[in-house]
Design a protein around this nucleic acid. Sequence first.
DNA 1: TATACGATCTACAGCTACTGTAGGTTCAAG
DNA 2: CTTGAACCTACAGTAGCTGTAGATCGTATA
Lengths: 137, 137
Amino acid sequence: MLSIGTLGKRTGTKVQTIRYYEQIGLMPEPGRTEGGQRRYEDAELDRLAFIRHSRELGFSLEAIRELLDLSDNPERSCAQIDAVAQKQLHKVEARIARLEALRIELRRMIGECHADRVADCRILEVLRDHEECLSEH
Amino acid sequence: MLSIGTLGKRTGTKVQTIRYYEQIGLMPEPGRTEGGQRRYEDAELDRLAFIRHSRELGFSLEAIRELLDLSDNPERSCAQIDAVAQKQLHKVEARIARLEALRIELRRMIGECHADRVADCRILEVLRDHEECLSEH
DNA sequence: TATACGATCTACAGCTACTGTAGGTTCAAG
DNA sequence: CTTGAACCTACAGTAGCTGTAGATCGTATA
């Protein structure tokens, strides 16, 4: 029987976050002591660990909900799980590509400025100037 | 004299977003027509373009506020602007590093699963298992 | 057994950076 | 003058938490 604080420490989750997961139905309503405090079983610890690990991998709460639903039906095909993971991988890769473009522009911007006064600052110029920017979309 | 819609189209910004920027003090309160509609000058167009371009580069609204303040004092040293840009570059690089670690784990996870049934799915196992994960922080 | 004090409780507000909606008004083209 | 797109305000909602206030609970120690 674990208190919410213990659960939090074991999984690196804030107490409020656990209550929030309960509120949105991602975590089940646990048993309570006579005084009304939450008490958890190991199964709930595992579930929370799953959620947190998935969050660390960047899965949205919606995706995690889907994964949890799927894992409740162990006889079904795991193609759907693969699809969720693939989608996440694509998202991560798209974000990397975007950030790498940003990095290049930021580096160029910073490298170009050797001014002293704000008035001559190339960084501001680049930010003001829309010619050579990323906004093709 | 530009309407808010025109401003939006020229900068790729939704009308509500412009009003939001005004509300939080990032854009000035523009003049109005007799009927109460906003009318902008070219200076405001430039300011909005600056904001949007900076947003595209991942700067937070707070950072942009700082950059705009600095650029209002063109005689000051541009070292502060450089610092803001450097900080942003570090943030971007940190995010890239993090996402690259995620990509590796996601790829490994997906590559390892050749199961049919959810019950045997390696992806879920990896997500459940905290042994080999990223959570050193 | 009494007490102290940290942990927990509920309920709600706040964060970032917008986006969407409802219900009404204004502008400009035809 | 009419029509319809664009505009107005005000407010709620999004994700994923985090923080606060004020009250109650649980347990280790005296």
